[in-house]
Structure formats: C-alpha cells, structure tokens
Design a protein around this nucleic acid. Structure first.
Lengths: 145, 145
DNA sequence: CCTGTATTGATACTGAGTATCATCAAGGGG
DNA sequence: CCCCTTGATGATACTCAGTATCAATACAGG
C-alpha cells in the first residue's frame, strides 16, 4: 500500500493541487481528531508531534480541504471558527455542545422548507447553512447536567 | 415625545441594564443602516458623524443588544461576523449576497425537520441556526449577473 | 441633590488570519 | 531517471477583530 494512492491525493490532483508532504501531514492530524477542532488545535498538534509545519500552511491546507469538501467550517455559537472532517456531499452537522463531537444528517425535508421560504420572501435562495447544537447520545446517557 | 420612552430603553431596563447615551447612539446608528453590518461599520459610522463613542462600547452594546434579541449575529460565508436588526422572536434570516439586505422568515416546517434529525442521529437538539443566502427580489429584478 | 454602581472610553494587549518572499520539492517532459 | 518549471512551504512581519484594564463619568433610586 502506497501513501500516494490515498483518496485525498486523488482529490487534490483532480482539483489541480499537488499532493505534498505537508498536506498529507495535516490530513493525518485531522483524521486523528475526534469532533470539531480549530486551526489553532492543529497548530498545537503539529508542534507537540514535532512536525515542522508552518502556521500559514495549516490555514492554507484547511482552505484547500474546505474547497474539496473534505472538511467543513462551522461557526460555533461562541463565535469561534471550527472545522469537522466530513464526506464530500451536501449535508448538515449536528454538534454536541458538551463533547464537541459531531454527526452528519441529511436534509430530509429541508428542501421543502427552503422552497417555502422562497415563496414567503421572494428571494432566490442559492445556498443555505443549517447548524444544530445539542447533546449526543453518549453525553445524554451520562446525564444532562 | 421623550427619547427616554423608546422601546429599547424599556427593554434595557427590564433586563437590568441602564439606558445610557452611548447605547441610544448605537441603536440610532443601527436603525439608520440597511442590511447587515459589522461592528467595524458602526465604529466608522460613529467616527464619521463625530460621535465620541469608544470602540469597546460598540462591541459591548452589540453584545447587550444580541442578548435582548434586538439584533442577531450572522456568520457570513466569508467568515465575517455581521449583525442585523431584528424582531425579538425566533426566526431565520435570508440574506442577499449582492446587496446585503436581509429579511426574516419563520421556520415553517423546520421543527419537523429538526425532530426528524433527532430521530436519525439520537442527539437531543437544543438550538439550531439556519442561514439562507441568495438574491433578494430587487437584485433579481436588476439582473442576476 | 447625593450616592452607589454600572458604564464609558482610552489604552494596551491577545490571538486569528494573511501578505511577503526566499527556498524547496512535486511531478511532467525529455 | 534527472531536470526544470511552477506551485507549495515556512519564517517573519503585519493587520485587524475582539477583549482586558482601569480611572473617570453618568445613570437611577432615594
């Protein structure tokens, strides 16, 4: 098995980006993470693993991965920008406000809501973002205080 | 008519805040605005009108108004934090990506979507945010290039 | 009108994200 | 398999949003 054959490398190539060591390293850091994380988290991870990756590169790589839809940016209620790894298809995130983990949900029925709002307001809606916050099953089981 | 009797003053009092000159001035700046605006926009507005309001006070007042739900914070796709004036009831914003104006829409049917996602994922959802981006009727009429 | 206290604004600070630029390495062509 | 072009990297410096601090001020209740 050759690292060169990862699906990320393919996606990078398809989009005209080079599959570099730094990018693979960032992807690796992300896959070792659970739940959402900030750019600063990755910078810390890299440092504590002794990886010599520049701060700027981490931000740049997150932008690229966002464009490839391998990652999505969240806007937490606190105002922080965080990211989650995800599948490259349209969907929404359900975020646990206790542990930070997140799951994907498909937008069953949301399309109808959007159409209804277009009728209500007269806007033509091109893009939407739905973010849901609550407690995941594990944290619920562990008591909701 | 006495400025002291504005609904904002009442809302401030109800929440235990004082109705100060600086806060009234910020509210005034906001009502003169159309569409969404950033904290920096208000800082500029204040300066260009010769108002002596500190930067910090503008940020603080926006926090207070957000808490009173006289204003809501948006997270634009660009990553910027913006605000819109709004009615103090739960609703969602439809934002024009050309001119920045926004309208309110009620969440007809969204409740059902949320319940469905709870069933799908096992999460208990406490809070949600739906933001819609597109073109407003005026910008549509003016051609969609 | 007086007073306790919330609020203000000037200043300095923090921290996220970006611009710059010399150096480096990916990978396609020979 | 090596070269060369060009995109990518990382160190640094910078910008700008948002926050902490704190002495001075102004609101509101008595």
């Amino acid at each position: 098995m050759d690292a060169t054959d990862s699906p990320i490398d393919a996606a990078l190539g398809r989009a005209g980006y080079r599959a570099t060591g730094a990018r693979r390293a960032v992807v690796d850091l992300i896959t070792r993470r659970d739940g959402h994380f900030t750019a600063a988290d990755l910078v810390d991870d890299a440092q504590s693993r002794g990886l010599r990756i520049g701060r700027a590169t981490i931000f740049r790589t997150l932008d690229v991965l966002t464009e490839l839809r391998a990652v999505e940016r969240l806007d937490l209620p606190t105002g922080d920008h965080a990211y989650v790894a995800c599948e490259p298809a349209h969907h929404h995130h359900v975020i646990c406000s206790r542990c930070g983990r997140s799951s994907d949900a498909d937008d069953a029925g949301l399309r109808a809501v959007v159409r209804d709002i277009e009728r209500q307001t007269g806007y033509r809606i091109d893009e939407h973002r739905l973010e849901l916050f609550g407690l995941c099953p594990d944290c619920l089981a562990r008591g909701s205080t």
